[in-house]
Design a protein around this nucleic acid. Structure first.
Length: 591
RNA sequence: GGAGCGGUAGUUAAGUCGGUUAUAACGCCGGCCUGUCACGUCGGAGGCCACGGGUUCAAGUCCCGUCCGCUCCGCCA
């Protein structure tokens, strides 16, 4: 029979009682993890979010409680009053924090019953993720998952303490806001009061935080949901959480120092991990040159080596005519099997590679399908530039620069894992700086902002000639990278109208359209906007890295599937015709 | 939009070259059990082999399509 709490008050959680508490009367509340019924004695492992405590039901102590304990099942909810006692000699459980003691149950209240759960609520089973998501509330009871959210909470609290101590104000910005061009697809919200018009959910509070700087509030932060209607990945959800920060009267150095301090504080206070000070820095150009990506994983070496010039006049036409030729030398890779190389070839084709050329360096010779095309000078050049030694394998890519970097950059990561070069316990943060201001969009056939259109160009940029060679212009943007994952990014912003209009012009956005979309921002810049800049961190990704979680879904309480649905609530879902009528929306007939 | 992997009992998986009644472990139900801790032990129940179509004497197994989950490319200022 289910009972009320009846005034009972929990005295401890299920992870805190130790030998020091022996003899005290306690009241524990939680869920039945395991029942071990010996007919005489009954043992219950009681679980709450903190841990497990063993409760003993002994008929000689309480006939009534013992009798009722027979009927307990997994996930029943209990309140137990009893006395803490030492476990008998030799019966201590070193695997439990509470393993030295047990509770002799004197009184038992059954607070609720449970159906047999669809999967066992414990860490060592790993049910299909679809099932976990449907019964997410049960999934979150598993200690592994609960730990992630406790960690996330601690990280968020560390952020608030740190930023508060530096004079940052936590200020909320609108969720119903304006759709703007550039960037990701917006989620739209129809307006009932203004039919035919739509709000957009913010991709980030970018403009609002800049306006707070124009407002003179000087230092702003917010731990805030952002929304982007793009395809999902293991580290991407359509709604995610940013630690959003903006400061006035600062340059890059101030923002980066503040941001490093923030991340160091998070790691120190939640994991006890000391990150380096200062973080290493690398320019975008260096990152692309050495790692082929703008978010290098610097926990291991295996830098890429450019060889375009060496092969410029080669008889091997595939290399000679390529925009970019690069190589990846992997010590010890000579032992790779033919099958493994075939698999790697398939792997790089995903990035547009036509194939994967390779050389196995052996003491007696080079084994390779392509080396016969090389001159002696080219072989000598290769050997010198790559520092070849017996036991190496060298992989090559030649072709468009974008493809070569993507393919070899990805192959580098894969080989780092394959060769066991990655220290899974290490945290290797770094800054990537000096990003290009613009990036060419071949589909739209125009230059687009690499970061966003409010990022300031580097000092000394010739404004008048910005549109002549946009690709060469650098920006005042910086990204923070941790273990090959982009965890934060920001910039010093444009704070004058003239520069902002120049920027829109360079992006091919006509002035009248710029005024229509961003007029409020351009106007605000006319009223004494201070120099300002900031940064935004991905709280989910940082938590993922701290928790060692394989998926961003493991650090979001109620995440979406890869198709953007919620298996628990069954959203998104159709709505009543009346709702659509009120919004002035008619659905197109399904094709 | 594209590529790949997967879907068999409540759960996790096995199921060979297409061939008898589809296995196992855990869980579940019942009995026994006073020192277990993933208790033990005896017995039992439990299956639309994701869905639809096809090939075949015969399909969990082969083929086609659909749905769902995951990973990746594109996309994500």
């Amino acid at each position: 029979m289910i009972e009320d709490l009846g005034g009972w008050v929990r005295s401890h959680d299920c992870n805190s009682l130790t030998a020091a508490d022996i003899g005290s009367e306690v009241c524990l509340m939680g869920w039945v993890q395991f029942r071990r019924d010996h007919g005489g004695l009954i043992f219950i492992d009681l679980r709450d979010r903190a841990g497990l405590t063993q409760v003993v039901f002994d008929p000689s102590l309480s006939e009534a409680a013992h009798a009722r304990a027979h009927a307990l099942r997994a996930e029943f909810v209990l309140a137990v009053k009893g006395r803490v006692r030492s476990r008998p000699e030799g019966m201590h459980n070193p695997n439990l924090a509470t393993g030295d003691i047990e509770i002799e149950a004197l009184e038992l209240k059954l607070l609720n019953v449970s159906q047999t759960p669809p999967f066992e609520v414990e860490d060592r089973v790993d049910p299909a993720e679809g099932l976990r998501l449907k019964y997410r509330y049960l999934d979150l009871r598993r200690p592994k998952m609960a730990r992630n959210f406790i960690l996330r909470h601690r990280a968020a609290q560390a952020v608030r303490r740190y930023l508060d101590s530096l004079g940052f104000l936590e200020i909320e910005t609108p969720i119903l806001t304006k759709s703007t061009p550039e960037g990701a697809r917006d989620f739209l919200v129809p307006s009932r009061l203004n039919q035919g018009t739509f709000y957009a959910l913010p991709q980030s509070p970018q403009l609002f935080k800049q306006l707070l700087m124009v407002s003179g509030l000087e230092r702003y932060y917010q731990i805030v949901k952002c929304f982007r209607d793009e395809d999902l990945r293991a580290d991407r959800q359509p709604e995610f959480t940013q630690i959003d920060i903006e400061m006035s009267f600062v340059d890059e150095e101030s923002v980066m120092a503040m941001a490093e301090g923030l991340v160091r504080t998070m790691f120190a206070e939640t994991l006890g991990v000391a990150l380096p000070s200062p973080f290493p820095r690398m320019t975008y150009a260096e990152a692309m040159r050495d790692y082929g990506v703008d978010k290098p994983d610097v926990r291991f070496g295996l830098k890429l080596v450019e060889l375009t010039e060496l092969f410029a006049a080669s008889n091997f036409k595939v290399f000679a005519k390529a925009e970019l030729v690069k190589a990846l030398r992997v010590p010890g890779g000579e032992s790779l099997s033919r099958k493994e190389i075939d698999d790697l070839t398939e792997f790089v084709k995903v990035y547009g590679a036509q194939g994967l050329a390779w050389i196995k360096v052996r003491a007696e010779d080079w084994q390779s399908p392509i080396v016969k095309f090389f001159s002696e000078e080219e072989k000598a050049g290769l050997s010198a530039r790559l520092g070849l030694a017996p036991g190496d394998i060298v992989f090559f890519q030649a072709g468009p620069a974008v493809m070569v970097n993507a393919a070899l950059g990805a192959l580098r990561l894969r080989m780092g894992e394959r060769m066991g070069l990655i220290d899974e316990k290490a945290y290797a943060p770094l800054w990537v700086t000096d990003f290009p201001l613009f990036e060419y969009d071949p589909e739209e056939k125009r230059w687009a902002a690499m970061h966003h259109p409010f990022t300031a160009p580097s000092p000394g940029t010739d404004l008048a000639h910005i549109s002549e060679n946009p690709g060469a212009v650098l920006s005042r943007a910086y990204d923070m990278v941790l273990n090959g994952s982009e965890i934060g990014g920001g910039s010093i912003r444009i704070h004058t109208t003239a520069m902002q209009e120049t920027m829109f012009a360079a992006l091919g956005i006509p002035l009248d359209e710029a005024r229509d979309k961003f007029g409020f921002m351009l106007q605000a810049l006319e009223f004494g906007a201070p120099p300002h800049g900031g940064i935004a961190f991905g709280l989910d990704r940082i938590t993922m890295l701290m928790a060692g979680a394989p998926s961003i879904r493991d650090v979001i309480a109620f995440p979406k599937t890869q198709k953007g649905t919620c298996l628990m609530t069954d959203s998104p879902s159709e709505v009543a015709p009346k709702q659509l009528r009120e919004l002035g929306i008619r659905l197109r007939e399904k094709a």
